[in-house]
């Protein structure tokens, strides 16, 4: 699925303002993009990766989570019972452990919008990027960040 667009994070620009989280909350009333606090100066958003072989979809007992032909992993029916299997199965831990209206909170990459997902569109510094895997390999992303240990980032 290298041609499918995904959300990437450029750590050289992320200021940890949590605007992405607010944008998601404003539209859905849920925090489908969460944040991780690594140290006092590193504070980054965690979004669903929309895996090629999603373990959350495999774990779902009612086949609510499905992969669309475009490669999106979405909640395709209303039968979610809030069993949290998908939350436990996610290897990246990006699904919020809190249920919203008894349903797990799952990023759908804002498929109702034609352009970027809301979190990417609202990002104040352009740290979140909505691009394909091929494009990201050509760009210089987080190079200043990875040059140093994340804990002592950018010092």
């Amino acid at each position: 699925m290298t041609s499918q667009k995904r959300i990437f994070l450029d750590l050289d620009y992320c200021i940890g303002c949590r605007s992405c989280e607010a944008a998601c909350y404003s539209a859905y009333g849920e925090r489908r993009i969460r944040y991780g606090d690594i140290s006092s100066t590193v504070f980054l958003p965690l979004a669903c990766r929309h895996c090629d072989e999603p373990l959350c979809a495999r774990a779902c007992p009612f086949e609510v989570l499905r992969v669309t032909p475009e490669g999106l992993v979405i909640q395709a029916s209303f039968h979610c019972v809030g069993c949290r299997s998908c939350i436990l199965a996610c290897p990246f831990g990006v699904l919020d452990k809190e249920l919203s209206w008894h349903i797990s909170q799952k990023c759908s990459l804002c498929y109702d919008r034609s352009g970027n997902p809301r979190c990417v569109a609202s990002c104040p510094t352009g740290a979140l990027k909505f691009i394909t895997e091929k494009e990201i390999s050509k760009k210089i992303v987080s190079q200043r960040f990875v040059a140093r240990s994340p804990y002592y980032r950018r010092q």
Partner: peptide, 23 residues
């Protein structure tokens, strides 16, 4: 809904957490 498509303005459609909470 808050919209972000605008290319106008000093922010080019981007918003912070407070702006996102306008609705």
């Amino acid at each position: 809904q808050v919209e972000y498509d605008s290319l106008l303005g000093i922010n080019k459609g981007r918003l912070c957490a407070r702006g996102n909470m306008a609705v």
